[in-house]
């Protein structure tokens, strides 16, 4: 059995973002990068499945981006993936979801994966398109936003998260692609011996232009800090004065603490 998990590196969401020179993406220098949160769950689920099947499946982790994305590939290898694929693309931030899905699908086509895992969306762009579009290009069945996953002899039973705590139960057969939502499992931290072992695992680098030259279907024309619309007040200062002020505000604006 062959498994693939697709991961993305994203900046810390608490960073101070500002537009870069192109005006259509944010300035990347100085940002701290890590694995997209939803992909932590995808990697964990892929490794759990490999373990469930006694280690038999061959599990590849794939990431698209500049040199720095090798860091998260290494992390996934330390967690339990067998081999890494780095689709090298310094301009990935300017590609649209269709182009990114095309890179994944074109790579995966020749490999005949039985099951592909992705995060449900990225934390930076949040389009929630890439996984499903890759599945559509491959002609794979797909299910999205899973908070539950079981696998038995080619049959996947997934719990898709809907709104307000409701979940839908879906069944699909491999070959398939599933997108993972937070809470699906409890992602583990890589253990030190595994980090060392992972250094010996193969990471293959493929230039993006070797895989796909699909044209973009959408283009970002501008990125900007939104205007502040909030009308609330901002309180700063030492904690005890702040506590007094908050109590006064609660008294003035609610029927409480009277």
């Amino acid at each position: 059995m062959k498994l693939l998990v697709c991961i993305k590196q994203i900046p810390d969401m608490e960073s101070q973002f500002k537009p870069d020179e192109s005006g259509s993406w944010f300035e990347e220098s100085g940002l701290v990068y890590r694995m997209n949160e939803y992909d932590d769950y995808a990697v964990e689920q892929a490794v759990l499945l490999k373990e469930q099947l006694g280690g038999e499946p061959d599990l590849t982790v794939l990431s698209i981006g500049p040199d720095r994305v090798v860091e998260i590939i290494k992390k996934a290898l330390a967690i339990g993936c067998d081999r890494g694929v780095h689709i090298h693309d310094p301009a990935v931030a300017h590609k649209d979801p269709w182009q990114i899905a095309s890179l994944i699908a074109n790579f995966a086509k020749e490999q005949h994966y039985d099951l592909i895992f992705t995060g449900m969306q990225s934390q930076d762009r949040g389009s929630a398109q890439v996984g499903v579009m890759a599945a559509e290009q491959l002609g794979y069945a797909s299910a999205t936003t899973l908070v539950g996953f079981t696998y038995h002899e080619g049959l996947i039973t997934g719990l898709c998260e809907l709104e307000g705590g409701l979940k839908g139960i879906v069944k699909l057969r491999t070959p398939a692609l599933v997108t993972c939502q937070s809470g699906l499992n409890t992602p583990r931290y890589p253990a030190l011996p595994n980090i060392l072992k992972a250094k010996k695992k193969e990471i293959r680098t493929i230039p993006a232009s070797d895989l796909s030259r699909a044209a973009a279907l959408t283009a970002t024309t501008r990125i900007f800090k939104p205007e502040k619309k909030g009308s609330g007040i901002i309180l700063e200062g030492d904690t005890s004065t702040l506590a007094d002020r908050v109590i006064n505000l609660i008294r003035e604006n609610t029927t409480l603490l009277r």
Partner: peptide, 13 residues
């Protein structure tokens, strides 16, 4: 994008 810290204008081609 980025947890509403930034906005993007996008055109469809």
């Amino acid at each position: 994008c980025c947890n509403a810290r930034m906005h993007r204008s996008v055109r469809v081609s």
